[in-house]
């Protein structure tokens, strides 16, 4: 699996495979949301029940992990986990996953990083925020600072590495099957199930849970 192909340039800005696949994922999410929320009534039909279940489960997760006073983060967390779920599982519909590109995962991790720092500053004030680095012992200050920067690095590299590794393994599997003159019918199925569906959903859940823990931990 090579790096993302560049399809062309607009005013010097490259249009990469990652960019196009992100748009495709966005369109898919919009279509799913439009289908699920069409014609909402007080006595819900089947589609509305699915939508309500998703929102209720996510609200419960945010309330449990971050605390009942931080429910304003719930829409962003649901958007994040939906985007990650749809884009990590892109392998099963034949697209190169947008999150298999380090640019995409670093962007998402930086969003979490800035949310953490901003909310920590806002809720603890500048003095409390700076004092937080001296806890529990003052000589741990450099370790605390490095640990603060280690969070987005580990978030982005974990997602990128899992998706890139899965993509490379699937590409190697398909080329091995083609080399052995087997038609790839049944053999790739368990690999898709493990690498694309299970690993993709688990990684999206991990990313969102860690973002929630970091943001709520910074606000104490």
């Amino acid at each position: 699996m090579e790096g993302p192909k560049i399809y062309g340039y607009i005013y010097g800005f490259p249009i990469t495979q990652t960019l196009v696949n992100t748009w495709i994922v966005m369109v898919m999410i919009l279509v799913v949301c439009a289908i699920l929320t069409k014609n909402m009534q007080k006595r819900p039909g089947k589609a509305q029940v699915i939508a309500e279940t998703i929102v209720t489960v996510m609200d419960g997760l945010v309330g449990q992990t971050m605390g009942k006073d931080k429910m304003r983060f719930a829409p962003w967390m649901l958007a994040l986990i939906m985007f990650l779920a749809f884009s990590n599982t892109s392998g099963i519909y034949g697209l190169r996953s947008p999150t298999a590109d380090l640019n995409c995962t670093v962007g998402l991790a930086l969003m979490t990083f800035f949310m953490t720092q901003y909310n920590g500053l806002k809720s603890k004030g500048l003095g409390g925020y700076l004092k937080g680095f001296l806890e529990p012992m003052p000589f741990l200050l450099p370790i605390n600072i490095i640990g603060e920067f280690a969070n987005p690095v580990s978030l982005s590299f974990r997602l990128f590495g899992n998706l890139l590794g899965g993509g490379i393994i699937m590409a190697l599997l398909y080329s091995a099957l083609a080399g052995l003159m087997f038609f790839p019918i049944v053999i790739p199925v368990p690999f898709h199930f493990y690498f694309d569906i299970f690993s993709g959903l688990l990684q999206s859940f991990i990313f969102t849970m860690l973002s929630m823990v970091f943001i709520s931990g910074a606000m104490d």
């Binding site: 449990q64 992990t65 370790i143 490095i146 640990g147 280690a150 969070n151 690095v153 580990s154 590299f157 849970m209 860690l210 823990v213 970091f214 709520s216 931990g217």
Partner: peptide, 23 residues
């Protein structure tokens, strides 16, 4: 469960740092 998970993840994030040093 949520308190346990939060403690576990915070401790794991601290343990991550030497791995990041190697990276």
């Amino acid at each position: 469960q949520s308190d346990i998970i939060r403690t576990m993840l915070l401790g794991a994030a601290v343990a991550e740092t030497t791995g990041i040093y190697g990276l």
